[in-house]
């Protein structure tokens, strides 16, 4: 859908939480993909002026250029809650969100650096007492105190939900890709540093972090103890065994049997 097609919602204040991402191939800092999609989703609802961007974390020059990537989407300013790397950013974000008065907070499903557990939106929603929906593909409409959204399910499926506002929502790869970030607005945009309280993340202090170990997907589990069975399990071709075979039926009767199974499995919509 072209973003121009969506009606802008008047009077709605939207905030997007953004983080510094990491390019999967080169590891260079960038705007995080899911976060950028969240911003894009916000821009489908409101004009850039009514969209607040919020980042909690450090603001080194390298990270700054990544954060400017969000400004390059046409938004004038980004608030940076200055937080050291070992801080728990949730209290700071919560306080800031309460101050801002946003009714809708958009978040990428998870970050691309650090723990990236995807917990922040859940903790915020819990603390703020707001609605939460995850995995949004699209916000279809916002109407007063609620909004209608499409939630992405696995296997490309979609579900329509009605969500009471205020709400925190998370966005992942199912949502529309973020618009290109433009150099001019990114350069001009303002990074507003906000000093705030710092809560140390004590729990994470004892963690060991290492580069991810490659983990090939499981092949077959051959449990059999006997050599013959291990042999057979490897060399035999896939056979179900015990299936129902219907012969001598009319095509209609065959079709009915199939239809019954399709209905039972719930794949027929």
């Amino acid at each position: 859908m072209r973003r121009e097609d969506i009606k802008q919602v008047q009077g709605l204040k939207v905030a997007a939480l953004v983080s510094v991402g990491r390019h999967p191939v080169t590891g260079r800092p960038r705007r995080a993909d899911f976060d950028a999609r969240a911003v894009e989703m916000g821009l489908s609802l409101v004009a850039p002026e009514n969209m607040s961007l919020l980042h909690a974390g450090e603001c080194s020059p390298e990270r700054e250029s990544a954060l400017r990537g969000y400004l390059g989407m046409g938004i004038g300013a980004l608030d940076v809650l200055d937080q050291p790397p070992e801080a728990d950013i949730v209290p700071a974000l919560e306080a800031r969100l309460r101050e801002m008065g946003a009714r809708l907070v958009l978040c990428g499903a998870r970050g691309e650096m650090g723990e990236a557990s995807g917990l922040v939106p859940f903790l915020l929603a819990e603390r703020l007492g707001w609605s939460l929906v995850s995995g949004l593909a699209q916000i279809e409409s916002v109407d007063g105190d609620s909004m209608t959204v499409l939630q992405a399910l696995p296997r490309g499926q979609r579900r329509r939900l009605k969500v009471r506002l205020p709400a925190v929502v998370t966005v992942d790869a199912a949502a529309q890709a973020a618009r290109q970030s433009a150099y001019g607005p990114a350069r001009r945009g303002e990074l507003r540093r906000i000093e705030g309280e710092v809560t140390p993340d004590a729990a994470a202090r004892d963690w060991n972090t290492a580069p991810a170990k490659k983990r090939p997907k499981r092949l077959k589990i051959v449990k059999a103890a006997s050599a013959r069975d291990r042999f057979k399990a490897a060399a035999a071709k896939a056979e179900g065994g015990g299936g129902q075979v219907l012969t001598g039926l009319s095509p209609q009767a065959g079709a009915e049997a199939i239809l019954k199974l399709l209905r039972e499995e719930g794949v027929l919509r």
Binding site: L219, K220, V222, F231, A234, A235, A236, K237, A238
Partner: peptide, 17 residues
């Protein structure tokens, strides 16, 4: 016969090993 699996075998039958 396993060592050079002929057409009766599934693809890559011993990859798990």
């Amino acid at each position: 016969a396993n060592v050079i699996p002929n057409m009766s075998y599934p693809p890559e039958p011993f990859l798990h090993l």
